[in-house]
Amino acid sequence: MRNRKISFTVNNEKVTLHVRPYETLLETLRERLLLTGAKEACGLGSCGACTVIVNRKPVRSCLILTLEVEDAIIETIEGLKKNGNLHPLQKAFMEKGAVQCGFCTPGMIMTAKSLLDRNSRPNRSEIIEAISSNLCRCTGYKKIIEAVEDVCSKE
């Protein structure tokens, strides 16, 4: 099966690639673009470790075919830092101790970012609703919730 050409924007950079039609976005990001921030923890959409944002929506990149994202705007954890400054969520996750092993962190932050993108002042239950899309094995979620709350209170 021949590779197919596709163009999209990742972290403000336009890329054109030739990908297998049965290649997932997660594979393309990790293997071709070397953006290894998105992780594969289950491969079946259960955990959220591979979450990236496509056209302002959070997606499990392990469940998406790369060919689906023609012309899309993709944001990954690697693109959150702007002009050398960490995104407020990245800062808050560090300052509030919301990071332990870090394997869920990129996906968790992207899910949280997409929440703030559509609702800049979510309440606690909205935060919990959103981040309950992602599994974390280390933190018990308390400090993750507090980190997102912290960003909302500052914005």
Binding site: T36, M94, V99, I109
Partner: peptide, 23 residues
Amino acid sequence: KRVPRTDSIYKVTGAAEYTADIK
């Protein structure tokens, strides 16, 4: 003191390299 962990900067930016990330 409640200090941010030194490893967390790598983890929040996606720069932390886990075994599967090694190429």
